[in-house]
């Protein structure tokens, strides 16, 4: 092929690329850019949502980094949550997805079942979990009592409240499972056939075929898990309200307090932008590492 042909192809590809991405680019400019830019602007103002924002320069950021008493606990609690809940969720959902990918009796039923918690109303979920985690009557502690173990006050003990919320999160892995399941369907059967000829056992097959082949999905769930976990809010908001002793005072809860308790939207926006920078930094590192470990079918990048 002549290089001029290659140039035209390149240019055609770039043009097509921009055109295909155009819906999102337009949508971003029209629907997303303004709200995001506004919140960035608010972060340099005092804004109580009632009168116009008032420019105060870096005062919000300065206050957050110097005298805000919830900022550091908020960051630490959130990092703790991210560090434990993301890997745990990934492992659990991968395990369940592999199980659900079997041809076995009642598999359609099982698959629907694992998705059930995702369709149950959140209020019901909260009530139910309060009961499950109850120190005395809760299912968990009653089960532990059978084993002769005295279970802790899951949500009422500052040492256990975060692990409890992380455990609770496991119950909503249905969405991640579905993604893994879809990904497992994409692994070509021919690869397993080849492995079989080489005499590979199930563990080796999983490590050397399944894992690399679904690595793009693992990577996706990892990145989305991180982004989601950094913004953990609902469980803590409903179940613990940040307590006991601020042990579940996650960053998003701090933002919520500033915005809707203290009616300081400008300050809350500054907090949110600091969060964005933190998530972005972590995500970029993961993206960089991902390129090394993720196996894509394409050869271009």
């Amino acid at each position: 092929m002549r290089w001029t042909d290659r140039m035209t192809m390149r240019r055609k590809e770039a043009l097509a690329g921009v055109l295909f991405a155009l819906p999102w680019i337009l949508g971003f400019l029209v629907f997303t850019l303004y709200p995001i830019a506004s919140s960035f602007y608010y972060s340099f103002t005092r804004y109580n949502m009632r009168s116009a924002p008032l420019w105060i320069g870096l005062a919000n950021y300065e206050t957050i980094f110097t005298t805000d008493s919830l900022f550091v606990p908020g960051v630490l609690n959130t990092l703790y949550f991210v560090a434990f809940s993301v890997p745990l969720n990934l492992a659990a959902s991968l395990l369940i997805a592999v199980l659900l990918n079997n041809r076995t009796f009642g598999i359609r039923f099982y698959r629907t079942l694992f998705y059930l918690p995702n369709v149950v109303s959140i209020v019901a979920v909260a009530l139910l979990w309060q009961w499950i985690l109850d120190p005395t009557f809760g299912l968990i502690n009653q089960a532990l009592a059978l084993l002769g173990v005295e279970g802790p006050g899951w949500l009422t003990d500052a040492a256990w409240s975060k692990p409890s919320l992380i455990l609770m999160g496991l119950w909503g892995v249905g969405g991640t499972v579905v993604i893994f399941l879809a990904s497992l369907q994409d692994v070509p059967a021919s690869l397993y056939d080849a492995a079989l000829i080489d005499g590979a056992g199930p563990v080796r097959k999983f490590r050397h075929i399944t894992l690399p082949m679904i690595s793009p999905a693992i990577f996706f769930n990892l990145v989305m898990g991180i982004i989601g976990a950094f913004q953990v809010f609902t469980q803590a908001f409903i179940m613990t309200g940040g307590g006991p002793s601020d042990s579940t005072m996650f960053y998003a809860l701090v933002i919520y307090r500033k915005a809707f308790w203290d009616i300081q939207m400008g300050y809350a926006s500054a907090l949110a932008w600091i969060l964005l920078v933190m998530i972005l930094a972590v995500t970029l590192v993961v993206l960089k590492l991902g390129n090394r470990f993720v196996f894509y079918g394409d050869t271009q990048s």
Binding site: L127, Q130, W131, D134, P135, T136, F137, G138, G153, T156
Partner: peptide, 14 residues
């Protein structure tokens, strides 16, 4: 006692 009261109040609120 914390445990006894927690049990009590959860039962009440349930």
């Amino acid at each position: 006692p914390v445990r006894a009261f927690n049990a009590f109040s959860t039962q009440a609120s349930a």
